[in-house]
Every structure is written in structure tokens, then in C-alpha cells.
Simulated assay, not measured.
Amino acid sequence: MASVNGLDGVTIGRLAAASNLSKSAVQAMVGTKEDLQLVVVTAASAVYTDCVGAPAQEYPDGLPRLRAGMRAWVDDYLPHFDGGCLFLAAASEQDGHPGPVRDAIAEAVEHGEQWLRREARLAVRLHELPTDTDVDQLVFELHAIVMQTNHDLQLFQRRDTRTRAHTAISRLLGPETS
């Protein structure tokens, strides 16, 4: 619901209607609308961990894990939500609204970027990426690929989007070796 209608579109009334509960029952479970939005952000973070973090953990640190995580982000996480990446939509929706919801979104996005940064730094230390790699620039470009992929999937429904994303990732990280 949040990925399609935005975080502001998630209301206690809509959730009650979707779950066949009374508004008062839903409110008793989640509290305020802000509390509900924070629950949604937490749930979306768990989906990210399940779709990206956990599968990537099965690969060795550094470049193999970075590649696996990017592949999972593009192939598994982005299509998980009907309306696309909740964090990308919510960041645009909430970026001008200071408060706990905006802070939770920023923290979740930063967590994803920290994961990219950690694996990229390991790849440099392990000599899987050139020693002069600008890790912050690499993280910026990898995150930009995710954002553009979401944009092209949601706005244009381009069928070649994931292929283009994988090509861009390979240009940055080098082709995968068997």
C-alpha cells in the first residue's frame, strides 16, 4: 500500500478497510499515523534485508558479495513492491518534512549505502578493485543505478531495464567471472 500510495497515503482507515478491522482496532495496534508510517519503514527495511542482505551474505566479502547484492537489489528487491522501491518514493515524499519518519527513511537509505561502501572498501583492500578506486563515487554510481532502474521500471515499464542495470553494474565492477 505504501509503495503505491506513498507513506502519506497509508492511513489507519485504509489499513482498517484492507484488513477488515475497525479503525479503532488498527489504531490500538499501531497508535498514530506517524507510528504506522514508522512500522511501514521498519517492515520495508526487513524486506530489503531479506531480498538483498541475506542472499548476498552467501558470497565471499568484497566484490563477489557486492555483485550479488546489486543483482539482488535490481532483480529481487525493486520488483518486490507493486509501486517500486518504498524508500525511493518515501525519500522524495518526505525529504522536506523533518521528523521521525524522514529520519527513519534517511537511516534506512544510509544503511544501504554503508553496506555498499563496506563491500567496496573490502574489494579495494582485497585488490578486486583498483587501489585508486574512489569508493564514495562508486557508491554514488551504484545507488544511482538502483534509482534509475526503479524509475524506468515504474514510470516507463521498460522491459530492458534490468539488463541495462546489469550492464551498468558490470561496467563499474567489471564482468563476473565463473
Rank of each mutant, 00 (worst) to 15 (best):
F140Y: 13
I169H: 01
E113G: 09
V124W: 02
G9V: 03
V26G: 00
R118D: 14
G53P: 01
T163D: 14
Y59L: 11
Q27W: 05
L7A: 03
A68F: 04
D50M: 10
I145D: 00
Q148I: 12
A108V: 05
T49V: 14
H151V: 12
E141T: 10
L88N: 09
A108K: 01
T32C: 03
C51R: 15
D160M: 08
A18D: 13
A91M: 10
A120K: 05
T133R: 04
A28Q: 13
P79V: 04
D8I: 08
V47P: 00
A104P: 01
E141A: 10
S45D: 10
R14G: 08
K33D: 05
G53D: 08
R117H: 11
G83P: 02
G112A: 15
L21Q: 13
E107D: 14
G84S: 05
L88V: 10
D76S: 14
T32Q: 01
P79Y: 03
E176F: 05
R164C: 11
H111E: 14
E119S: 00
V41T: 06
D136A: 09
P55S: 08
T177M: 11
A106W: 07
V101Q: 00
H80V: 02
T32K: 05
N20L: 13
P130G: 07
T131S: 15
G6H: 03
V10W: 01
R118S: 13
N150C: 08
R65M: 10
A17K: 14
H97W: 12
M70L: 10
E113F: 10
A104C: 01
V47S: 04
L155Y: 06
G13T: 15
R71C: 07
S178M: 11
L38T: 02
G99W: 06
G53F: 09
S45T: 10
E119D: 09
R117V: 04
T161W: 05
R117N: 06
D132W: 07
A68W: 07
A165W: 00
R102M: 12
T177G: 10
G31F: 02
R118E: 14
G112M: 12
D82V: 09
V10Q: 05
S178L: 12
Y48A: 09
H97Y: 12
T161S: 06
A43S: 11
A28K: 15
D136H: 08
A90Q: 05
Q154G: 08
P79C: 04
H97A: 15
V109K: 07
A16M: 08
S45P: 06
T161G: 03
D152I: 00
A54V: 14
M70P: 01
F87D: 00
A90N: 03
V10C: 09
G96N: 13
P55H: 02
P98L: 09
G96E: 11
L155H: 13
F156H: 14
T131C: 08
P175V: 15
D136I: 04
I12G: 02
I145R: 02
L173Y: 03
L63C: 02
E113Y: 10
T49I: 14
P60V: 12
A123D: 06
A28L: 10
V30Q: 08
A89K: 15
R125H: 12
T161Y: 04
R121F: 06
G112H: 12
Q114E: 15
L153W: 04
